[in-house]
């Protein structure tokens, strides 16, 4: 390599790094702000056979629609074995004669969403809340009653990436 070539290459790379220092940057300050690309619920329309685009996070169970048919349990059987049918005698819904509802173990769930695709009665959804961390491993297990409560979204403002031709990427609230 010639000396002139060496110096030119060095100058170009150092200049590129220096220019980058002054570019506008997009840093998501995570607990204070959140960057969720999709804030919708993942839902499946069994009549059309197509799902509605959304973030695949924690489940939401509509107990007034669940018939206890166990199709979500069968779908999960060989994937993660995370869903278990739990009897909930105090929940008296006419359509669910055996009173069994799915409970999800988030220590096992892989968030593939095929349980939602299996539900023919619009009872199971996936919500954009994916912050499931507990101090105790047993707390990762969510009973049907816990799943039927809509999750409280993180109050932190949602950040979306926006691009500017000159300034590069920056966040937009």
């Amino acid at each position: 390599m010639k000396t002139s070539e060496f110096l030119k290459g060095l100058a170009v790379s150092v200049w590129t790094g220096t220019v980058h220092l002054f570019r506008h940057r997009m840093t998501s300050m995570y607990p204070e702000t959140q960057n969720y690309p999709n804030t919708e619920m993942y839902a499946y329309d069994p009549k059309k056979g197509v799902a509605v685009s959304g973030w695949r996070g924690r489940h939401y169970l509509d107990m007034s629609k669940c018939t206890g048919c166990q199709l979500c349990f069968i779908a999960c059987e060989n994937i993660a074995e995370a869903i278990e049918m739990i009897p909930v005698p105090e929940a008296a819904h006419a359509q669910n004669k055996k009173s069994i509802y799915p409970g999800v173990d988030y220590g096992r769930c892989v968030f593939c969403g095929f349980c939602v695709d299996a539900c023919p009665f619009y009872a199971l959804y996936m919500t954009p809340v994916a912050e499931i961390s507990e101090m105790n491993r047993n707390d990762l297990y969510y009973s049907p009653v816990e799943l039927s409560v809509p999750p409280v979204p993180n109050p932190a403002p949602k950040v979306h990436v926006n691009f500017d031709k000159k300034r590069g990427s920056h966040d937009e609230r």
Binding site: P37, Y42, V50, S53, G54, W55, R56, C112, G113, F114
Partner: peptide, 26 residues
Amino acid sequence: DVAASATGARVTFSYFVPGGVRTDLP
């Protein structure tokens, strides 16, 4: 981010299924 906005997951999309794709683009 772009891929996740359509598929709903960041890395393992599970987006292609026999017959097409799971969801329409948002």
